[in-house]
Design a protein around this nucleic acid. Structure first.
Lengths: 233, 233
DNA sequence: CGTTCCGGATTGTTCAACAATAACACCACG
DNA sequence: CGTGGTGTTATTGTTGAACAATCCGGAACG
């Protein structure tokens, strides 16, 4: 079944004269993020060019972009493959998230609207949990943390977080048959939103670090790798 | 003046069969970071291909990479230019630095070797200041902050910091006739190293935020933009 | 059963060409 | 003298074909 798992990549419309490679990259990105091409699958140039309707150069340009984001792995003279995350990738993801998310939390000036939006997302997640809608929970979770980052008002960190979350989705796609990993964290998000809404900043920070480290451990556990924590200080 | 400011870009040796674009990107990166191509200068494809000895497409691939790092700006159907930083760029740089550097500081477990290395870099900076070696001070300063980030042991944050510092150098290149901006911060780095060495983590964090915000303000002041200005067109 | 070597397939790169857009000189016209 | 259209030229965005380099699988051989 994975022989042509990426058979449903949409053909890119060569409308404009510019930015074609970016649109190709976007198409591939959404396909990979959506699970249309599982980690490890090869992305051959000739077949994809035919499928996308673009030239090899344009496709390679898109590949380069995706490789820079860590979504795809280039093996010299071998080809490009959808990156299959390792345990070290998971640790790296959470290292970055702990630093950046708590940093955003500290630098943030939460407006009443963004607090309301946080609560909204939490409610969405709860509805999704009630409906046993696992993708819905995952999406709400990502929106929640993306919104936290957004409070730093930094374009750089926003795109960094987008890339981190994309790598995160890649991790989940390696564990397709997992029990719903997200449902246990709906309440954590709710609690975090509560702390933020009450302006208890320091507690929120500590809770977030605890929360992320716990998620990392459970994920590593689920991958079969022990959660080696070196909190030496 | 800027007609052939980038005339001294070295020719890239087409040694290996792979990774040529990466090496071209590296060559351009070092040229731009070193001030060999000042912000705003255009980088025409044909001339650079002749100069570097690579094909147009390889060069374009390198351009794409540099654009992703924010070193270079692509104007559709116009060409690529060395990015000329604005006041907003400076604010963005320091927003990211405040969040990431303090985050690294908190997540760090400083070994005695890294503390010694910090002190070493501070001594280097002091020597450079005594010799009125402005580039030397700048380099020491960048090493100092890069070392702080490195304590987080995150490849993602290391490359992020590299890109931020590259953008930083771009800012300095717009102000070529600046008085030595760095000399005032040698002592601040020394003080920060002292706090870190003594394990006074919270004080170090606060001092770092104060320090970065002060640097941002002075830089903005020097650019003629006081605090924030609304530019209408 | 293991090794060597060869041919096909795929990737990395270059060259040549064309379409699309922008920059610019030019000229008619007021 | 200024001004706005107009065609020309230069440069960018993209494609296709070609070639070298490398990898892969299998046949031939010991």
């Amino acid at each position: 079944m994975s022989t042509d798992a990426w058979a449903n990549i949409p053909r890119v419309d060569p409308g404009d004269h510019a930015h074609l490679a970016e649109r190709v990259a976007a198409a591939l990105r959404s396909t990979i993020s959506g699970g249309g091409a599982l980690p490890g699958t090869k992305l051959p140039e000739v077949r994809l060019t035919a499928q996308l309707g673009v030239s090899r150069h344009t496709l390679r340009s898109a590949f380069q972009q995706l490789a820079g984001e860590g979504l795809v792995e280039r093996q010299p003279n071998r080809g490009v493959f959808v990156h299959s995350p390792t345990a070290e990738d998971v640790r790296e993801i959470y290292r970055v998230r702990r630093i950046v998310e708590t940093g955003a939390l500290r630098a943030a000036d939460f407006s009443s609207e963004s607090i309301a939006r946080l609560q909204e997302i939490v409610d969405e997640a709860k509805r999704a949990r009630a409906d046993v809608d696992v993708p819905g929970m995952g999406q709400a979770n990502q929106q929640f943390h993306r919104l936290i980052i957004a409070q730093a008002h930094s374009a750089t960190l926003d795109t960094l977080m987008s890339q981190i979350l994309a790598r995160m989705r890649l991790v989940f796609h390696t564990r397709r048959n997992q029990p719903d990993f997200h449902s246990g964290y709906v309440d954590s998000n709710a609690q975090l939103a509560e702390l933020i809404g009450q302006g208890r900043r320091q507690e929120a920070e500590n809770f977030l670090i605890e929360y992320l480290s716990r998620a990392e451990s459970e994920l590593l556990e689920h991958m079969g790798k022990p959660a080696e924590r070196v909190t030496r200080r």
